[in-house]
Nucleic acid binder design. Structure first.
Lengths: 195, 195
DNA sequence: CATTTAAGATTACATGTATCATCTAAATTA
DNA sequence: TAATTTAGATGATACATGTAATCTTAAATG
């Protein structure tokens, strides 16, 4: 069947990336094989190494692809006022039953963070970069680097992990509700820069 | 070499459990093979099925073993005043560089939570049970079921995950410090039961 | 139109996997 | 002490894994 045009190769490449980004989040990185990814992308595993150097390469690239996917909308917002508005919506979506039940399309850090932390090399690096990016988005207007964005990120990630760990929707809801309350406290009471 | 006395079998059993509890936390559940565990326990893989029905069985049992190990000290404290005191120490240890760097002996939920959430059956169940247990310990004196314990657990888990994801001790420290501040806010400002 | 190129399929490889049947020697028990 | 039991070792199974060489065919190039 090969060979295909440059444009079609790009499309294949993106299909692999999309499939990997979804499967890695849904089943985990270790639990997903290169063959699984290629099958989900509608190909056989043979062609894989025309697109990526190794599975490790795919992990880093697909993870970053997922981060872009989830985060770039909000980054386009230029004014800090516009962001503040969007941030509330983003947080509400993040702490929703829908997000808890759809890890496939959800926060890549929540789904793969633990696994990336255990890695060394490129996958670990992009994980750390993603953290910077997302914490910056969660940072409330005024002071950057106060740690409030980091705390918010930790709380969000922790909360969906708990919600996904529960055994009923009611319990998941209790976790999500607790997360919402806690995020509110961080926003309302985080100490001002003393300087 | 076999056969060994009943007492020695128990000791073997515990060695397997300890090894599994450590390796699962350090490398992850999927990334750890039954053979790895048995080798770390000083045995060959053949004897494994005299002790456990399956790897899934081991996962659930070893996870619970780790939870007991980490949590049972604090549960022995009877009075809620005694617990309150201990809780602060527990939280300080949890949000420490030492804990971030030693997942092997650290919080089982932080290390395996995401993976357990993806499981079905016994491993998922014990994960949910562990959450109940730990959230109860983090619950501040007064009102149970307010969700404050859940939020605290989410924050703690999220924070070490972030600390482990960073690429330098300084960044890890920033995450841990943010977590400490946030925990304080939860304790100080969590809304009283309206009733 | 002929030649070259390369995307993806096919196949192969060596290794790792969970599981289990069988073997062994020592502890139990009769 | 003799017979029985069984913990753990050995080895085999059947399959999944990451990687790579090779083949096929259509696109790109001349």
């Amino acid at each position: 069947m090969p060979r295909m045009s440059e444009a079609e190769k790009q499309r294949s490449h993106n299909r692999i990336l999309d499939a990997a980004a979804q499967l890695f989040r849904e089943r985990g990185v270790e639990a997903t094989s290169v063959a699984d990814v290629m099958k989900a992308a509608g190909m056989t595993h043979g062609g894989f190494y025309r697109h990526f150097e190794s599975k490790e390469d795919l992990i880093a690239t697909a993870f970053w692809h997922a981060v872009d996917d989830v985060v770039s909308d909000m980054e386009r917002e230029e004014t800090s006022e516009g962001r503040k508005k969007e941030r509330q919506g983003y947080i509400a979506k993040y702490l929703s039953q829908a997000h808890a039940q759809d890890s496939r399309n959800g926060c890549p850090l929540a789904a793969m963070g633990t696994e990336l932390a255990r890695t060394t090399g490129a996958p670990h690096q992009v994980g750390a970069q993603a953290l910077d990016r997302m914490a910056a988005l969660l940072q409330d207007t005024s002071e950057t680097g106060s740690g409030q964005g980091l705390a918010a990120m930790a709380l969000l990630m922790g909360t969906i992990t708990l919600a996904r760990l529960t055994e009923s929707e009611e319990e998941a809801d209790r976790a999500l509700e607790a997360g919402r309350t806690a995020i509110g406290l961080l926003q309302d009471y985080w100490p001002k820069e003393r300087s």
